[in-house]
């Protein structure tokens, strides 16, 4: 089995350009990324360097202007929005800086959501187990607004891992948390990542968090510098 087939995500020469009033603006330029199963990658850089854009492109949430992205060995580029969503279904997890929980759903319903979407009949049981794993078995019926920031991010972690994803995208997962809580959430993230053998791509400003990943990409003005 060669390296290419083992790659969970592979991006070649991808660029993203947007039109502004002042003309075309290059957000990302000629980026290459490759990650195999179980590996972790940190994307670091200053604000506005294109980190979140790169994450969005790799996850298929947005389309590159040029270049090619393969996810789980299948071409992501060229697929329409629904095709990209189908590729993610049941295989990709997300953790966002702003948690992005469904505000009108309880913690349990939030975690069960991707499982139900994937048609898992044991959605509720698995969601319960996932919340137990992150230490929130006593908060199952709470709405997001009734939870602290740290608790919300743990619910988000449980949601991301409950499905047993092969690849997890995390956008500044500790960015909205105080240092202590952030540390606990990060520990949990890497712990589950290790246990489940999930590949991890995370965007962060936090050098210590980035250092815990096996690979790093540093972006400056949309270009890869390391």
């Amino acid at each position: 089995m060669n390296v290419a087939t083992k790659a969970v995500v592979e991006a070649r020469d991808i660029s993203k350009r947007v039109m502004t009033a002042a003309g075309e603006l290059s957000v990302l330029d000629a980026i290459d990324v490759q990650l195999t199963a179980g590996e972790s990658l940190a994307i670091v850089g200053e604000s506005g360097s294109g980190k979140t854009t790169l994450l969005s492109l790799l996850a298929g949430l947005d389309e590159p202007s040029s270049g090619r992205i393969d996810l789980f060995g299948e071409a992501l580029t060229g697929l329409d929005e629904d095709g990209r969503a189908a590729l993610r279904l049941g295989r990709v997890g997300f953790v966002f800086q702003a948690f992005h929980l469904l505000p009108s759903f309880t913690a349990l319903e939030n975690v069960a959501a991707p499982l139900e979407l994937a048609g898992r009949s044991d959605a509720m049981a698995r969601a319960r187990a996932a919340l137990e794993r992150v230490g929130l078995s006593h908060r199952l019926d709470h709405l997001p607004r009734q939870l602290s920031g740290g608790e919300q991010q743990r619910v988000a972690l449980a949601r991301a891992f409950a499905i047993g994803p092969r690849l997890l995208f995390a956008d500044e997962p500790t960015g909205n948390l105080d240092q202590h809580t952030g540390q606990r959430v990060a520990d949990l993230l890497f712990e589950i990542n290790r246990d489940q053998g999930t590949s991890l791509i995370l965007v962060t400003h936090d050098a210590r968090l980035a250092a815990r990943c096996q690979h790093q990409i540093r972006l400056e003005a949309g270009r890869c510098v390391a």
Binding site: L61, E81, A85, R88, L89, L117
Partner: peptide, 17 residues
């Protein structure tokens, strides 16, 4: 709120349909 929730669901793999 619906726009946001829709985006979230799509990130989790839900089709537009």
């Amino acid at each position: 709120a619906r726009r946001f929730e829709s985006a979230l669901w799509r990130s989790l793999g839900a089709s537009r349909r």
